[in-house]
Design a protein around this nucleic acid. Structure first.
Lengths: 345, 345
DNA sequence: TTCGGTACTGTAAGCGCTTACGGAGCCACG
DNA sequence: CGTGGCTCCGTAAGCGCTTACAGTACCGAA
């Protein structure tokens, strides 16, 4: 019947008893369009209508259904955050920094822990679920990231040399250089070894480059190839054996991160080789434990929280279309001199 | 015209160029219903249709639009994870454990860091965005949680005495008791003090209860009221002054967590009071630093990862409706004896 | 041959929003 | 008094799915 034509189509059943835009409209005596306009502030509405809608919405404890909003507006108000693990303070700190800024822009966070096995599916699927993706995981191939970046805005943290997406990193090479120079110039070290695999992440590669540069500038050669161990406690334990197996005992160990340095230091000490005295030991990241061990671990502090914040800001802009050409954002790093290099307390 | 009646309504424009269920249906030569059935596996489809749909979907790189799915099915396939902070290893570990199990059930994770200021809005809004909520934050009032639990399935980790939702905790009282008895019976401590505020969290309250019970069972009285400091490094620093200000110097400090214990230990040592020798010091949580400091910190290890996993499992069941009555799930805790209590290396 | 099942499939309604479009009411101006 | 412009509002189409319902085709039993 044509008498039906003018009114909103009959609703099914009140599915969940939850208020919808229809119930709010009815209670406020306006159309759903007006409710939408009032609540999203996208168009002018009369003071009376505005007030009535607000009142009705409040009385019904109305919360807009997220899925309906997204479907109609083609916006998710959500960023995906892709990390490989939450081990150690690095990712936690990064996530906190990211969250803070994202929340300021009313963006929600979808946490994706992307193991290798489940990655392929997940990563591509994200484009049907979020507005943009932040990646802070080292072991995802560059091509995979590039493919994703072609579908949806992507910002990457902590690694470099990526095409088509913004990158946020902290300065590594110069600081690693300075730290290494400190060992050479101040502590007179001559037989230095880098502990960590430069090929595993561009970040570590940059640190290694700084290390290498410092040696070259001082006319030295490394005592050995980098000791390629994983960036974990286990890696540090493994490094103990490698160090002891070296033809000539090094007098300085520059580690890719604190975890490795701490485990390596503890292992050496068990063999009566005392970091700070018998050799210099440095880490990277300034984890909490670094300032509790004795001797305190000389290391470098990345502005991790700020990196997260910057990444969130960038991605938000990029999603909103108000960002310039993609580029690389480098934040400053600070060397933290404690005693494991040989400095006095 | 009635000739139009039989065919699917005309689509607007190909909004984003992305494949939809319509394009897949068209390419496969079937209806969208069949596509949906094939891809979700909710009904039998002929081998030929199945294959054609799969092929078309693959060729078009089709990913179902999450918002449309949710809107139509009233399911989000997402859990909210509410935490107060990611500081320290506790929350990271919890989150990892949770994520692992949630992923196994194909549930996504919405990360909500709920500061006090933004909490009220966020928490209630979650019901229009996720299927269930996991809360691992200590400072949310019980009533607020109860209110949320009335709207949507909720599971709480690490605190007790909550109505209407599942609770996952680790055993605290007995382990705290055992740890305290160790100090009394093995190390002959008599002047014990608890460091931490039992009123801040039910978890710490339980540890304090165990501490208190051990004293009572041994016919002792605590030397002083609990030193009510925050559970942070700053709290530990503050505790140093409190300890030194005590009328009688305690010979054992039982701390609410490792962070406090580590900072307190470092502070005391600076005053030439050596943990392990001059007094016993214990923590709780077994953070990474606990095994690197000297003396190694005697502490207790909660099965944090398992707690996260259990919580995810519970919430998934509860959302699916296949869970029994709400209840409390207690996992075992393990005392970790190192040297800060006075034990030899 | 007829009829009831069984195995699939298509049609279309509906999920709860956003938003283009057009209309109503009102004022100022010619 | 007619007209143009402005402000506010309602109508309805559409977002891309799921799923109830109603076939259709085919087979075996009566």
């Amino acid at each position: 019947m044509s008498t039906d034509r003018g009114r909103p189509r009959a609703r099914r059943s009140p599915t969940s008893g939850r208020a919808t835009i229809y119930s709010v409209a009815e209670r406020a005596g306006v159309s759903i369009a007006t409710v939408s306009r009032v609540l999203s502030g996208t168009a002018v509405t009369s003071p009376e209508a505005t007030e009535r809608v607000l009142k009705a919405a409040h009385e019904l404890a109305y919360v807009p259904q997220n899925s309906a909003k997204s479907l109609a507006s083609a916006r998710y108000q959500t960023h995906a955050v892709v990390i490989g693990s939450l081990d150690g303070p690095y990712y936690s700190e990064l996530l906190m920094g990211y969250e803070e800024v994202a929340a300021r822009h009313d963006q929600e966070l979808l946490l994706v822990v992307a193991d290798l096995p489940r990655r392929a599916r997940t990563l591509a699927d994200l484009r049907a679920r979020v507005d943009g993706v932040m990646i802070a995981q080292m072991d995802i191939p560059a091509e995979e990231i590039a493919a994703l970046a072609a579908l949806i805005p992507v910002v990457v943290v902590g690694r470099t040399r990526l095409e088509g997406c913004d990158v946020v990193i902290s300065e590594s090479t110069d600081t690693a250089n300075a730290l290494t120079r400190h060992l050479i110039d101040v502590h007179g070290r001559r037989r230095l070894v880098f502990v960590g695999d430069p090929d595993q992440s561009s970040d570590v590669a940059a640190r290694h480059a700084g290390f290498q540069a410092a040696l070259t500038e001082s006319g030295l050669d490394p005592v050995a190839e980098p000791l390629r161990v994983p960036y974990t406690e286990q890696g540090g334990d493994a490094a103990v054996a490698l160090v002891l197996g070296l033809p000539s005992r090094p007098d300085a160990l520059v580690c890719a991160n604190d975890e490795v340095a701490l485990a390596l230091g503890a292992g050496l000490r068990r063999r009566s080789i005392v970091p700070g005295a018998d050799l210099s030991l440095t880490g990277w990241d300034d984890v909490t434990a670094a300032r509790y061990v004795r001797p305190g671990l000389t290391t470098a502090r990345q502005p991790v929280r700020e990196m997260g914040g910057r990444a969130a800001e960038l991605l938000h802009r990029r999603v909103g279309g108000s960002a310039g050409p993609v580029g690389q954002h480098v934040l400053a790093t600070e060397a933290v001199i404690r005693q494991s290099c040989g400095c006095p307390d």
